[in-house]
Nucleic acid binder design. Structure first.
Lengths: 152, 152
DNA sequence: CTTAATGCAAAGGCTTTGCAGCTAC
DNA sequence: GTAGCTGCAAAGCCTTTGCATTAAG
């Protein structure tokens, strides 16, 4: 498994460094979505040495490798979620995002077949190479809604 | 119509200034999606005087008023699209986004009923106040795909 | 008149980069 | 050994903000 990981990275011309291992490991046994800064803090609390720049660089590469997935959040730093070392351990899902605090909640849906169909129609119609899609809901979580005095 | 606009803004405690009018007008008779900087340039070419800071502030307010809609683009400045002065002249649609150049293409879909249902389920399940959603496809337009030598 | 909006320049937040020294392979 | 990686600090990019001046209602 570790061997496997190394092999995959080497195949892409990347080295499996201590830092990259640490960043990827930080996601294991965690189910949430983390910013670069949060990963940096998690690792520092473990008394490991890593720079924020390296966290950014590692997140990039691990995302490119398909081990992580980046979630872009309006007016808030990007967050990353663990996908799996085999590229698809975590099932397909979508996101519910709090515009107040940046919290991300995963949810499942059965829209895949419709979306797939739509995707291939769009690729043809607009000559696009589509690499991914998302269905996303945005709003305010209970706490943030209270703070803003929004009626739920 | 102009009167109407002024009234709406005053009701929200906003003044209808020359600059805000100019920014909103820049979207009329245009169908594309523009960054703050692009709007700034469009207005400067017309020999009008406006600062970039004011463009940002105006885009914010006009979006809050519902006249514009902001489209967040990964690793690229936000773009704005015209909705209408009555708040909904432009029909509901979704976006196909080029990760190479930031280009945005609108498309229609008939997913609304499914999405509405999903939204109210999510609001209940997670105690969220959901304010909006999007269905979005990302990838590369013909030109950018060529540059990156992606096979379409 | 009085409150809010503008312009300018400066600062802010997140992210990337240049470069000398250091590791993985 | 040597290509690629790291840490550090500096820079970059988009966006926001403080403040004196100006304009809207």
């Amino acid at each position: 498994m570790r061997k496997d990981l190394k092999m995959k990275m080497n195949l892409q011309g990347y080295k499996l460094t201590q830092q990259r291992k640490m960043v990827l490991d930080a996601f294991k046994n965690r189910t949430d979505h983390y910013t670069a800064w949060e990963i940096y803090e998690i690792l520092r609390k473990k008394r490991t040495n890593i720079s924020l720049a390296t966290v950014y660089r590692s997140l990039d590469i691990l995302t490119e490798m398909g081990f992580l997935n980046r979630v872009d959040i309006p007016e808030s730093p990007s967050r990353y979620e663990f996908v799996g070392e085999d590229g698809s351990a975590k099932g397909h899902h979508h996101h519910l995002i709090c515009l107040g605090c940046g919290k991300v909640i995963d949810f499942e849906s059965d829209l895949m077949p419709v979306i797939q169909k739509l995707q291939s129609e769009l690729e043809k119609k607009y000559n696009f190479v589509i690499t991914n899609h998302h269905i996303r809901f945005e709003g305010y979580c209970e706490d943030c809604a209270k703070k803003l005095k929004l009626k739920s």
